[in-house]
């Protein structure tokens, strides 16, 4: 299975562990990745805040390069949610908004580039792992099942919303990451905040707003008794991990919720060494949580205080007849 790969700025910087762990599992998944040469930044949410057509031209250059370099695959895979959404949005708007398409291609022509809207498929890494590699293959690759590890699967926003090409089963309650984590042997908790916001760029704009959004998620994952929160977006990881300490200072709390990439847990389940997966580079150490599955325990273990959740009584009126998995999306 061959794909073009758009890593985006974060994977080369703050999300290096994401890239490293992807590189470590890529071969086992028989994924062949061809990096789009000389790609540029997608503009995150910032470029679009100041410019409109230029924001799409910025992304358009990446699409044009991908089309030009395409060699056996018309799929561009992104692992960062913002990159994924920006590529997908520009592709979609160029396909459906003729005026914008003309503007972007006129601009691209200045650099002797052209993009034919509709010629590139934009997909997220998780989508490819779930749908192309498939759960059966994943299960066969598991050598060290993550038994006993309680995982909160966290998607953040931009991978499932607005979901312009309807690739996910729900914009509010997707279940793909949970299925993947279960395939790795982990115990998945029902995490109602799985698609709530990590605060995005608010850490840079209003820390009060940002700390509150981060607190809700960390508190939620703690409240639902997760050992670890697993994510698929560099921005989410950075905000929840690096700013967790700041948030604790701000509210005078002592939450300890390690935040790892789903690719790191895949690597562990496949028997790859933690170091190779970039584990240890997180701010909130995952070592204590990973001790549950037999990973090396550090010397000092921070105390972990959690509010206990009341157990539901098994009596009374029956619950609505519902499968444990919600599978019907609204879109």
């Amino acid at each position: 299975m061959k794909y073009m790969f758009y890593p985006g700025c974060s994977l080369h910087r703050s999300a290096r562990p994401y890239l490293d762990s992807l590189a470590a599992i890529q071969e086992k998944l028989t994924m062949e990745l061809q990096e789009v040469e000389d790609w540029n930044c997608c503009g995150a949410t910032e470029y679009m805040s100041v410019y409109r057509a230029p924001a799409h031209a910025l992304v358009g250059r990446n699409l044009a390069l991908a089309q030009q370099q395409s060699n056996g695959s018309d799929t561009v895979m992104a692992a960062c949610s913002a990159c994924y959404l920006n590529l997908e949005k520009t592709e979609n708007y160029m396909r459906t908004d003729e005026e914008l398409n003309n503007k972007v291609n006129t601009a691209l022509a200045e650099g002797d580039l052209h993009y034919d809207a509709g010629s590139i498929q934009v997909r997220h890494l998780l989508d490819i792992i779930y749908n192309d590699v498939g759960m059966d293959r994943i299960k066969n690759l598991v050598t060290n099942p993550l038994e006993g590890l309680k995982v909160a699967a966290y998607y953040g926003c931009m991978i499932v919303r607005p979901d312009v090409n309807q690739r996910w089963n729900s914009p509010e309650y997707p279940t793909v990451l949970e299925e993947l984590m279960e395939a790795l042997g982990a115990e998945v908790i029902d995490f109602p905040m799985k698609t709530h916001c990590c605060s995005g760029h608010m850490t840079q704009i209003s820390s009060d707003v940002a700390y509150e959004l981060i607190r809700r998620l960390i508190y939620g994952a703690t409240h639902y008794e997760a050992d670890i929160l697993v994510t698929l977006c560099p921005m989410c990881q950075l905000n929840l991990d690096a700013y967790q300490i700041e948030m604790n200072n701000h509210f005078d709390t002592d939450y300890v919720m390690p935040i790892l990439y789903f690719t790191q847990l895949m690597g562990l389940a496949f028997g790859i060494e933690p170091e190779e997966l970039g584990i240890g580079r997180e701010f909130v150490s995952a070592k204590q949580a990973l001790a549950k599955i037999g990973a090396p325990v550090p010397d000092e273990v921070p105390e972990k205080g959690k509010p206990r959740r009341k157990k539901k009584k098994e009596e009374g009126l029956p619950m609505p007849q519902v499968s444990t998995r919600f599978n019907g999306g609204s879109k």
Partner: peptide, 22 residues
């Protein structure tokens, strides 16, 4: 209408959310 189709309202997941017919 199957209220589970609006997951953010929690029907089927949160015990004390009921439908009109219930």
């Amino acid at each position: 209408f199957d209220a589970r189709r609006i997951p953010q309202y929690g029907y089927g997941r949160l015990a004390n959310v009921f439908t009109s017919l219930e």
